[in-house]
Design a protein around this nucleic acid. Structure first.
Length: 329
DNA sequence: CTCTTGCA
DNA sequence: TGCAAGAGT
C-alpha cells in the first residue's frame, strides 16, 4: 500500500515530453499488481491463455512498455527481493484480504452480480512465482533490462537514481521518497490525458515542508508503513507538526506510547537499505521471433497486436545510457 | 490497463 | 478529434 503522505505532498504535473530521453526505474511489483488487478473481463476473470495461465500482466507489460518506449523513455524494471521481517504483518494481512476477496468474488459470481464480482476480483490479485518469472521472460525478449533487488525494489530503484543509472523512479507509492529517490513519477501510464503524470522531487518536498529526509522517515513511521503499524491517531499533518516541534522519541516518551519495535532498525529500513550494487543495464532490440513464439504461440496473443507493439519498440535507443540522466534538469 | 471500433 | 463502450487472453 505504501505510506499515506497524500495530505502533505503536492505533486507537480508533467508531460511525457519532459521524459523524452530519460531512463526510468520502474517498480515492477507495483506495475504488475496494477496489471493483475485491472486487466480483467467484466466479471473479474483475468486474461488467460488456452491452458489457463494468467496473461493480464504480460498484456500490461507489452502495451505499457512499448508505449513509453515510443515516447522516448528508457525503462528499467526493478523487482523485489526478500522482504524484511518487519513486513511480515503486512504480508499476512494482505494474504487474508486476498483470500477473503476471492471468496466474495465467487459468491458475487454465483449471484450474477458482475460489479461486485469485479470489485473483489481486483482485490484478490496475487503475485505468484509464475507471474514474476513470465514477466522477466517477456522483458528479456523485449530487450528491456531488469534488476533483481536484495530487498525492497523501491529502495533499489531509489539507489539507482542516486547512482545516476536512472533519472527517476516510477511507482504509485510515496515510499521511494523515504528511500531517497531524488525524483519520482506517479501515473506513468498512457491512458487518460497524456499530460497528467505526477512528478515529485525529494528536495522540493523537503524544502517545502522544511524538514530533512530523516524527519520525513519519522513522520512515515508515526503514520504507519508496510513495516510498522504506526501510532494511532497520527496522520501526515500531525506527524509533520511533531517532527518540527518535538521528535518521535520525545513524543513517545511524553505521551507514554507503547512502541514495541526497535526505532533505529525501523529507520534503517529506509535510510540504510540493503542494495544490490552489482547490476548491469543494457537495452537490446526486441527479438521478433521470440516475442511471437512467447506471446502468440505460447500465450494466445493476437499476432497483429503484438507486431504493432514491436513496431513501437523500435524507437528504443540501445546504447548504454543517456547523459541526460546525469546532467538533465 | 490499453486497444479498437463506432459514432458525434 | 474526442469520447464511450467493449474486447483483449
Amino acid at each position: 500500500m505504501g505510506v499515506k503522505f497524500k495530505d502533505i505532498i503536492e505533486p507537480e504535473i508533467i508531460n511525457f515530453k519532459d521524459l523524452n530521453g530519460r531512463t526510468i526505474a520502474i517498480d515492477a511489483a507495483n506495475s504488475l499488481y496494477q496489471f493483475l488487478s485491472s486487466i480483467r473481463q467484466a466479471d473479474g476473470t483475468p486474461l488467460m491463455d488456452k491452458n489457463g495461465n494468467i496473461t493480464s500482466h504480460l498484456s500490461g507489460i507489452l502495451y505499457r512498455t512499448s508505449n513509453i518506449v515510443e515516447k522516448g523513455i528508457k525503462p528499467i524494471y526493478v523487482f523485489d527481493g526478500e522482504p524484511s521481517e518487519y513486513k511480515e504483518n503486512t504480508i499476512n494481512e494482505r494474504r487474508e484480504i486476498r483470500q477473503d476477496a476471492e471468496k466474495k468474488w465467487k459468491e458475487a459470481l454465483k449471484k450474477g452480480d458482475e460489479q461486485t464480482a469485479m470489485k473483489f476480483a481486483k482485490r484478490s490479485s496475487r503475485m505468484s512465482p509464475y507471474i514474476l518469472e513470465s514477466a522477466k521472460e517477456l522483458l528479456e525478449i523485449m530487450g528491456i533490462p531488469y534488476v533483481q533487488s536484495f530487498g525492497e525494489g523501491e529502495a533499489q530503484a531509489s539507489y539507482m537514481v542516486l547512482n545516476g543509472d536512472a533519472w527517476a523512479v516510477a511507482s504509485q507509492d510515496y515510499d521511494c521518497l523515504l528511500f531517497g529517490a531524488k525524483k519520482i513519477i506517479r501515473n506513468l501510464t498512457i491512458s487518460g490525458n497524456l499530460s497528467d503524470l505526477e512528478y515529485l522531487e525529494l528536495e522540493n518536498v523537503l524544502n517545502r515542508l522544511e524538514i530533512t529526509r530523516e524527519q520525513l522517515v519519522d513522520i512515515a513511521i508515526m503514520v504507519g508503513t508496510d513495516f510498522n503499524p504506526g501510532i494511532k491517531g497520527i496522520g501526515a499533518k500531525t506527524g509533520l507538526k511533531i517532527v518540527k516541534n518535538s521528535s518521535i522519541e520525545k513524543y513517545i516518551k511524553e505521551k507514554g506510547i507503547a512502541f514495541d519495535l526497535n526505532l533505529e532498525e525501523l529507520k534503517n529500513i529506509f535510510l540504510n537499505p540493503n542494495i544490490n550494487k552489482n547490476y548491469s543495464i543494457k537495452w537490446r532490440s526486441v527479438d521478433k521471433t521470440k516475442i511471437v513464439d512467447f506471446l502468440c504461440k505460447k500465450h494466445d496473443f493476437s499476432e497483429e497486436r503484438v507486431l504493432s507493439a514491436v513496431k513501437k519498440m523500435e524507437k528504443l535507443n540501445t546504447t548504454q545510457k543517456s547523459l541526460e540522466d546525469w546532467f538533465g534538469k
